[in-house]
Amino acid sequence: MPLAALPPLAAALFSVLAIASLLLSFVMLGSRWLKQYLYAFAAESWMIAGISAAVAFFDHVPELYLIAGLTVAFRGLMLPWLIWRMIGRLTIDREFHEIVQPASGLVIGALFVVFALAVSYRIAGALSVKPGVAVLALTVMLAMMLIGFLLLAVRREAISQILGLLVLENGIFLGSQILVPGMPLLFELVVLFDLLVLIACFGVLVAYLQTHAGTTSARDLKRLVG
């Protein structure tokens, strides 16, 4: 396993970037302005691209440089730009009706991180992997997924829900870069492309929502019940 024999500098770099990504998802959790979510998401994607590049350098997996470049292009620039345009076309620029206040959201997020850490230690113990970068990557991945689900559950604006989904995906992508750098390249390329299609679909749907349902808030989507 390459993870076992990482030089201390690499381990430190991975850790800093992973923790920075996690902190950026807390920024999303703690804000109610759509644009701030978006910037935090873009920055998070840049961090993940940094992780890809660092793995490429220290593990000598040159394909990952390509992934890093594409991550910056797709997740760091293109997706944020598409969503930025969507926000521009909407009349709404912030959340009004959170179920959970941002402050309480931060506390719940912190609990999720503790939970993710406990789960990761358990997994690492079962695999007899030494606590280190692997545990950190698992923790950050699981925590980001839980935070993504939290964003999906407590935020009501269409844009926030899209960004919640993207945080989920970012978490998985971050984990995959560190845990399984040998994963076939094809897969990661298609996932990136897939995301682009996903966002295009969301763009069309948000436009429909606004013209046909008259709202982009999931709070008002309650015609279908039972």
Binding site: M145, L165, L168, I172, S176, L179, L205, A218
Partner: peptide, 30 residues
């Protein structure tokens, strides 16, 4: 309006759900 609402719920719920399957796939690869 009902169709759009159904489509929105569909894509959000299923995409979120299926990301768990991606995590499962990743852990299996690991």
């Amino acid at each position: 309006a009902e169709s759009i609402e159904a489509a929105w719920k569909y894509i959000i719920v299923v995409s979120a759900g299926i990301s768990l399957a991606l995590l499962g796939t990743l852990l299996l690869y690991w």
